[in-house]
Design a protein around this nucleic acid. Structure first.
Lengths: 127, 127
DNA sequence: CGCAACCGTTTACACGTGTAATCTGTCAGC
DNA sequence: GCTGACAGATTACACGTGTAAACGGTTGCG
């Protein structure tokens, strides 16, 4: 299942605020992006049809919840990006991001700690 | 300028083998991807029209060269990916890739060295 | 019961993209 | 000069996507 650029905008809001009423999704996304309410409704409809969102009626209101996990979608989009730009290789992508990203000391520490874990796991596997 | 998924396939070959004759591009990409020669020709044409490729006639043969730098396109595609999936934030993307990538010890060392450089630069700036 | 609110549903259109067929201009060999 | 090779140029179509208007079913309030 492919989520388009504009659909990511909608999904990111719903992942972070689930469950959420349609009115809130429509108002917030329309305002933040300069889109009309009709545009947001189309996207909600397409995402439901794709199986990315579920909707349920609550009186006169409708409520949206994600029907797919964000981390699964992130993984798929990341894979697609790596395949397209880096021939599927993560290392050059990592190098690119480390080079170009503005990282705080805290960020650097966190990433370093994860790399340490990575190395320890490699050594464990070799053992 | 936006390079599509299929166009990345063509550009990656030409970036890595420039200058390259049309026949070679067409044969290699058609074979590697199960596309017809006509499909590859369409993509070459679109890339020239977009300004991503330049072509020059050499007798009866045509030669292609990139008209844009790979690193600039990588940067733009990376920016687009970060904006779409991670709200523009590089750190969560880095964390995601470190978590999911299969990294060799050599890779880990290289990335760690770059992080060290990053920290030193931060300290320099603060000084 | 009528009406407004909610917002789903349907429809529409332009553009980019994936895929490919066909036609045509130029070049080089016989 | 004719012909084949090279491959550019043009055309075509289906689909996804961005954007949005218009219509209609259901609910709840006065």
């Amino acid at each position: 299942m492919q989520i388009s650029d504009a659909e990511w905008v909608v999904m990111n809001l719903i992942w972070s605020s689930s469950p959420i009423e349609a009115a809130e999704v429509i108002d917030q996304i329309a305002a933040d992006n300069g889109w009309s309410a009709a545009t947001v409704k189309t996207m909600l409809h397409r995402l439901v049809r794709k199986g990315a969102l579920a909707t349920e009626q609550n009186g006169k209101k409708y409520v949206y919840t994600p029907a797919v996990r964000r981390d699964a979608c992130v993984r798929q989009a990341s894979r697609s990006f790596l395949d397209r730009v880096f021939g599927g290789e993560a290392t050059p992508a990592l190098i690119h991001f480390v080079k170009t990203a503005k990282l705080s000391d805290k960020d650097v520490k966190e990433i370093r700690a994860m790399l340490d874990k990575k190395t320890n796991r490699n050594e464990g596997e070799q053992g």
